[in-house]
Design a protein around this nucleic acid. Structure first.
Length: 111
DNA sequence: CGATTGACGTACG
DNA sequence: TCGTACGCCAATC
């Protein structure tokens, strides 16, 4: 588990994201100890669709709650659809009340 | 093997 | 407060 690759760890954390919640790339990176490599988290998501089980990458957004990665989904609206389906309000490709819905692994998993 | 890019974030003006 | 610049590390060209 802990010996898994950085990518696997990212997938594991993303899978732990509760339904109706979201987190940021930086939060995951920080939790994994690579806060300065937040980009790597996004890069890891690049292969999230080919991992089993598929990780809910739609619950991962940037620090402002913007659906920057929506373009990487099957359809640009897929991300919004999935989020709204979970009860998350998305306006202009941006998560509303992001601060409330934000799920920080470094905090939630530490408890 | 060197340069560029990228689903980010922080620092600075 | 908003816009721009830079750093990170891995993958791709």
């Amino acid at each position: 588990m802990v010996l898994d690759s950085f990518f696997s760890q990212v997938y594991a954390v993303v899978r732990l994201i509760p339904k109706g919640r979201v987190t940021s790339y930086g939060a995951i990176a920080k939790y994994l100890g690579t806060a300065r490599s937040s980009r790597m988290v996004g890069w890891a998501m690049n292969g999230a669709h080919q991992v089993k089980p598929k990780v809910p990458a739609h619950r991962v957004v940037n620090r402002v709650g913007m659906l920057t990665g929506k373009h990487h989904f099957a359809t640009p609206t897929q991300m919004k659809e999935l989020l709204e389906k979970e009860g998350i309000k998305v306006v202009k490709d941006q998560v509303r009340d992001f601060k409330q819905l934000f799920w920080d692994p470094a905090t939630e998993l530490a408890l």
